[in-house]
């Protein structure tokens, strides 16, 4: 699981994200989900977005992935509109739930992107070796013929990750992908993700409300305020890499998480609310 084939290595860092004045209102403009956001994320970076429930982090992520349309503003990935990138399979999206198709085996779920003809960059027949690599990376080789209901929650999350990795996107957008997992599986999956990310050179944007997870994984933590969402703080995380569970003992890790937790509690204070 920790050793991946060389072929997965990608020397060029890709996936610079440029968010320009993106906002989102629902209904007739009465619900402001997201106030205008401007953001530049460098290619190959690992960014975490944290914030309380309902602060619009998922909305922002879905707009970056062109799954949801912005009310205003636009998103560029490596200089191209997000819509073009999505159609060109340069964006991988991992949802809060694994969203596997229960009638398909693990293998067939991971191959789903190749059943979609408009963007099948490779023919399904030639994808065999790539499939083997991806299943190996997420450690599911032996479970390729199982159905989703036969897998644990952690394994289902890894199938969802494999389905996003199979077409080698330049941007990986993850919306609390480990939220449903127990603490132990969760930190294992997180370190596993770091492993995959460092080998691929893709950008990762990782939404979570788990502060320690954010600091452990990311180069940069963005803190969002409650609805209408906007980015309130932008914190660089200068912890050494590669990171491991040991990283949590680093003094900088402690001070960053303490700071962020205090910040969150400040949000709960009614006298502070906007």
């Amino acid at each position: 699981m920790s050793v991946a084939p060389e072929e997965l290595a990608r020397p060029v860092r890709v996936g610079a994200i440029d968010v320009r004045g993106v906002s989102k209102v629902y209904g007739n403009g009465d619900v402001r989900a997201l106030d205008p956001v401007d953001l530049t994320l460098e290619a190959g970076g690992f960014t975490a977005i944290v914030g309380p429930s309902g602060c619009g982090k998922t909305t922002l992520l879905k707009i970056i992935g062109d799954i949801l349309a912005a009310s205003d503003g636009d998103v560029l990935i490596d200089g191209e509109p997000a819509g073009a990138c999505r159609r060109d399979r340069r964006i991988g999206y991992v949802f809060q739930t694994p969203v596997l198709l229960p009638w398909r085996t693990v293998r067939e779920n991971v191959l789903l992107p190749y059943d979609i003809s408009r963007s099948g960059r490779r023919k399904r027949a030639t994808i065999g070796p790539r499939l083997d690599e991806v299943l190996d990376v997420v450690g599911l080789t032996e479970f390729a013929d199982k159905l989703p209901t036969q897998l644990s929650g952690g394994m289902q999350a890894r199938v969802a990750l494999a389905r996003a990795l199979i077409y080698e996107p330049s941007v990986l957008l993850m919306d609390e992908p480990f939220a449903a997992l127990d603490e132990l599986t969760r930190s294992k999956m997180a370190l596993h993700l770091l492993d995959v990310w460092q080998r691929l050179g893709t950008s990762v944007v990782f939404v979570t409300h788990h502060i320690e997870e954010a600091v452990l994984l990311a180069d940069r933590v963005l803190v969002m305020s409650p609805r209408p969402g906007r980015i309130r703080r932008d914190i660089p995380v200068d912890l050494p890499r590669p990171r491991s569970l040991e990283t949590r003992r680093h003094p900088l890790f402690r001070s960053l998480t303490d700071d962020l937790v205090a910040d969150f509690h400040r949000d709960d204070d009614p006298s502070h609310s906007v």
């Binding site: 799954i67 198709l101 789903l112 059943d115």
Partner: peptide, 24 residues
Amino acid sequence: ETTLQLMRGLNASRGEVFRLVKVP
């Protein structure tokens, strides 16, 4: 809705969404 968003993310056509997801 999330499955439909997944299919949108993968750039599936309406026919493919119907055949691959809605029918099963």
